[in-house]
Amino acid sequence: MLRSQFEEDLTKIHDKFEKMGEDVNEAIRKSIRAFIDHDKSLAKEVIADDERINAKEQDLEKKCFEMIALQQPVTLDLRKIVTIMKASSDLERMGDHAVSIAKSTIRVKGNKRVLEIENEISEMATHVMAMVSEVLIAYVNTDSQHAIEIALSDKLTNKYFKSIYSHSIKAMQENPETVIVGADYLQVAGYLERIGDYVTNICEWIVYLTTGKIEELDLKNFEEN
């Protein structure tokens, strides 16, 4: 009886985590669209919706603590709960960065734009959102190999960041009118780069779930091997 109750509770928090991940990815998508289209009302929607994401993370944490206290899980069962707690915290931080991108949109006031850089930001966001979608799939399937591949794909996120950084600096040097918007481009690319880092954190928790070992999926280590 207790075991079946535990399995039922675990399924519920798995589902809640997956739904939270979908909400976070939607927040990232909306925040980037708002930034590119200068859509301040959409940006405000992202900021307002963040309360819901935060509440979901708090609810998940509460449910996980309750399960630990009442069921006293060990080994793999405990790892499953710890993984959800840690990964939901990473999702919540991704949502915070989506809010930061939305706030950048509200700050931009008709400054001169550089469409080539905005296209790059859009491409970078598409890649990051794909990483978020894939990590949710890897989590649901407890697929550590898939998680390692997703962590490796963060190399492309870093490459986009470096490219946007150099193009933004060049644009600001060549045309002083782009200084304000260029600074926003740098910030938004930085937020996306950090979201990629949080996806990598979740990949590490998926590996922990299957192996019981906490390992840093450091790109340098992969490059050396």
Score class of each variant (00 low, 15 high):
M85S: 08
E204M: 06
A189T: 03
M1Q: 14
E26T: 15
E66Y: 06
L136G: 04
V46W: 04
T157S: 05
N175G: 02
K80L: 08
K155H: 11
R79P: 01
R113I: 00
L209N: 06
A27M: 12
D15Y: 09
V108F: 10
M131W: 06
L78T: 09
A69T: 09
S4P: 02
I101P: 11
K12F: 12
K30F: 13
T200M: 05
E215A: 13
C203M: 00
K86W: 01
E216V: 09
M1T: 13
D37F: 07
N25G: 14
C203N: 02
L219A: 07
K112D: 01
L156M: 14
G21L: 01
Y198M: 07
K103I: 02
D15H: 13
G212N: 11
K80E: 14
A55R: 13
N221M: 15
L10E: 07
I13F: 03
H146K: 14
E66R: 08
I180A: 00
E61S: 09
V46G: 04
C64T: 06
A48T: 06
Q173W: 04
A138M: 05
G196C: 00
E61W: 03
E149Q: 13
N225A: 15
I101K: 12
L10R: 13
E22W: 06
V82K: 10
R29L: 14
S88M: 01
I32K: 01
L60K: 05
V99R: 04
L2F: 15
N54T: 03
E92T: 04
S144G: 07
E224Q: 15
E223M: 14
Q173A: 09
E66F: 02
A102W: 06
K162L: 14
K109R: 10
E57P: 03
Q145K: 12
E134V: 05
M129I: 08
D39W: 11
Y165I: 10
A102R: 05
D15L: 13
V199P: 04
P176Q: 02
A48E: 12
E8P: 10
H97P: 03
V99Q: 00
L192K: 07
M129N: 14
V108A: 12
S31N: 10
F222Q: 12
L70I: 12
K112L: 01
L70P: 04
E26M: 15
D23P: 03
I121E: 03
E8L: 15
R3K: 14
L136H: 01
D184V: 01
Y160E: 00
S144A: 13
A125T: 10
